[in-house]
Amino acid sequence: MQNHATRDLIVGLFVLVGLATLAYLSLQVGGIEFGAEKRIELAATFDDIGGLSVRAPVRIGGVKIGQVSDISLDAESRPKVTLAVDASVAISNDSSAAIRTAGLLGDQFISVELGAEDDVLADGDSFTYTESAFSIDKLVGRLVHDAGVSD
């Protein structure tokens, strides 16, 4: 009987530890959210989004506040990016959204530079000022072109 009790205890421990690893993988690594914190959706239209992809982070001064939830073309066929942003962050009306690259070849993300207005953006609003992706291709192209002109 004693033996059974020990074995049952070990099996119970095994199940608990297994469930704990699965919970760690789901919650911490997988980033599943229960009763997800309130998010608002903001739109930003760019000329060129470069290699930006859905789920790219949105940051203010390097701190993550949300992510890109959708990329589509607006009515005038310009790239339109929808950002899902933490509702508790106040983003003033005249803030600008810029597409930046982490490192030279790293992933692209959206950096929000806060403005000075008191009014803040609400769910469904759009950014007035945006800055497109910095493209090495274009830069090299312009350099080559300029070099050609100066000759």
Binding site: G18, L19, T21, L22
Partner: peptide
């Protein structure tokens, strides 16, 4: 359960 252990 073992899969979770393996991955961790």
């Amino acid at each position: 359960l073992l899969n979770g252990l393996f991955i961790v």
